[in-house]
Design a protein around this nucleic acid. Structure first.
Lengths: 374, 374
DNA sequence: TGGCTGGCTGCAAAGGTTTGCAGTGAAGAA
DNA sequence: TTCTTCACTGCAAACCTTTGCAGCCAGCCA
């Protein structure tokens, strides 16, 4: 039933190799023959069997994308960007979800290894050593984590956290809480480190709460804890937690930002729609997706694999280009942050449940990290 | 570099066919041999090449899942459920996103056809005839749309819309707006039909606004229109639009639910977190994902394909089991709906921006559609 | 002892494609 | 005219696995 290269060959009166070349090396076949073959192929609805092609070329033209949690709105823009970039280069992205489970991550890498040309590992929760080990099985690009010797693309959340803390300190907050993320998250560690340093520099005290699941519920569950802890401002691991926290605080009668200021990280679409609109650190997720695909494909062309490849010729462990890209982040100030209670900041009189600052429509002020590539 | 069946055979001193059988038909090989082979395989880190296997068995053990928009929080639970169910049966799900583009849908089905054993087409925007045509190329299960002759799983949004309209009419609303969804959406048509009938029956007038993009922005952009139209209640195509609309109305100084009641559809996680909490029609998305996978795999075992299959023996167009499953929906009443302005409903006095009804924590009252399978 | 059974294993074809190599024929050069 | 060149095409091996068939051997029965 499925139409193969042989059917096309028969229909157009040429050998299968000519049909093959019509698709994979058109310049090697006579223009007349080419159009005839193409016509027949079109006619029969022929499409090359990628599995068979992969068997011999060693290239599937597929890319695996392993995600901690598709339901986290942080990821979809990244996925879409990666898909777009891949399609652009005649690759397909296969997305898989791990439910934040390190075991599932490993299992998925194994399962995908033979069906894809490389894997994008997004926000991995497993250990660095395991990642390195897996990278020997299939080309890997790690997103949201730095692993030495492996190509990575990370966001400069450190700079983002620093900006956020400075922003809060500037508003007079001296007792700041940090809602940390899930265990195993590189990003969470990075945020914590930077926030601690910034708090010290700004004369504020940082209280770390966590680790927590990086969800609305994770934030909501901490509301009471935050209230009791006496902090007047909070930086959350991500927007989802920040939004959950605000919800939880609201239920307790704690007003944001009048009583407590809240800052998120990610700038998901939703953060513009909550009330109050969320102050947050915007991360360039789409750019990360695109970059990761590019890096993987680059790495792939550098060191081709497959039976006919010259792979054996190059020394094992030879100097590979393992670029580490860091993308800059940006603090977006909206309505969930305000002067510390009891602080006489200039223009601090704010009334009502929905304060609107003038001149703060989109992304007004920006504090950015630098872009580095090595 | 990649370890093949041949390496394992050499290491364990048997023929490759024995290795193959060790994995695909263990009962045919001597227990002693089996453990030895397995040990060698484990040792070398051997994993069968699924592409090569697919070439001969005709089964890839992959399932394609084509989604209109991953960024719409409606889909992730469905994706996760489908992935779980598939993994359970030793299948993998490959997710692809079409950006609500009918052309991309068709392209993706073609691209996936040869690499998967079947495709789940979720909320397709293309025409029925095109879907039927594509179903001849690869087994298809359609989600959120009824196509005669094809296995489908749909939610009973008609019943949901009916319940929503009845709820609104019961609150005294006589001028109700309907924010319809994207062009080409079966669900949108279904909602519209049911809502119109229910409005007529309930003595209310229904104003249809749309089609619209099914996003927050799609809802937000309609706020002014809704305000001008004079309706006192709105049913939106989905929660995202409802939330966007509420946001937009808020910016215009229109209060929900005091001035306008809003009902969504889907019951995405977010709807519990907005203020006011959204009244909405809950759809069983996870169940839909699981069911669709089951139906596809069922269909697959019924009519095996592949070179060695007995497919030729069965008459083309023979009676296939093309089940059409309808899953029931449920109206969840929260805080975004209230009595029509000027109506003296009992207990209608509501003050403040954040009304909390007693005894409405989760999903209190329920109006459900029936479950049908044919 | 001879024949049969049954458990296990090996052989080889098959699946759809790519690709190095060789062959063909025509055009151009000598 | 003959040789060379060149553009194009065909041949066949290879990729990795599955599976029908046949072979082998031990054990059993008569």
């Amino acid at each position: 039933m499925p139409v193969t290269i042989r059917d096309v060959a028969r229909a157009s009166g040429v050998h299968i190799s000519t049909v093959s070349r019509t698709f994979s090396a058109p310049h090697l076949v006579n223009p007349e023959t080419r159009v005839r073959v193409l016509a027949c192929a079109e006619d029969l609805g022929y499409r090359p069997n990628r599995a068979a092609r992969a068997l011999i070329t060693g290239r599937t033209h597929n890319i695996g994308l392993i995600i901690a949690d598709i339901a986290n709105p942080f990821f979809p823009p990244l996925i879409k960007a990666a898909e777009g970039q891949a399609r652009h280069r005649d690759y397909h992205i296969f997305v898989a979800d791990t439910n934040e489970d390190p075991m599932a991550e490993e299992e998925l890498v194994h399962a995908l290894a033979k069906q894809v040309d490389g894997v994008l590992l997004c926000s991995p929760r497993m250990s660095n050593s395991l990642i390195e080990q897996l990278s020997r099985e299939v080309p890997l690009v790690v997103i949201n984590r730095q692993v030495t010797g492996l190509p990575c693309v990370v966001m400069d959340v450190g700079q983002g956290a620093r900006s956020a803390i400075e922003h809060l300190a500037g508003l007079g907050h001296t007792a700041i809480g940090l809602l940390s993320g899930p265990r195993g998250s590189w990003t969470s560690r990075e945020i914590r480190r930077a926030a601690a340093a910034a708090a010290r520099a700004g004369g504020a005290e940082l209280t770390v709460l966590g680790p927590n699941p990086p969800t609305e519920h994770g934030g909501l569950a901490l509301a009471e804890h935050v209230q009791r802890s006496g902090v007047t401002a909070v930086l959350a691991y991500n927007d989802l937690m920040a939004i959950g926290l605000i919800e939880g605080l609201d239920a307790l009668g704690v007003r944001v930002p009048q009583d407590v200021s809240v800052v998120g990280i990610d700038d998901i679409a939703l953060s513009r729609l909550t009330r109050p609109k969320l102050t947050t650190v915007a991360t360039p997720t789409a750019a990360a997706g695109r970059t990761a695909v590019d890096m993987l494909l680059q790495q792939d062309t550098d060191a081709p694999r497959g039976p006919r490849g010259a792979g054996r010729g190059t020394a094992v462990g030879a100097r590979r280009t393992t670029a580490q890209v860091m993308l800059q982040t940006e603090l977006v100030i909206r309505d969930s942050t305000g002067p510390a209670a009891g602080t006489g900041s200039p223009g601090a009189v704010r009334v009502g449940p929905d304060p609107h600052r003038p001149a703060d429509p989109g992304r007004p002020r920006a504090a950015t990290g630098g872009a580095v590539a090595s």
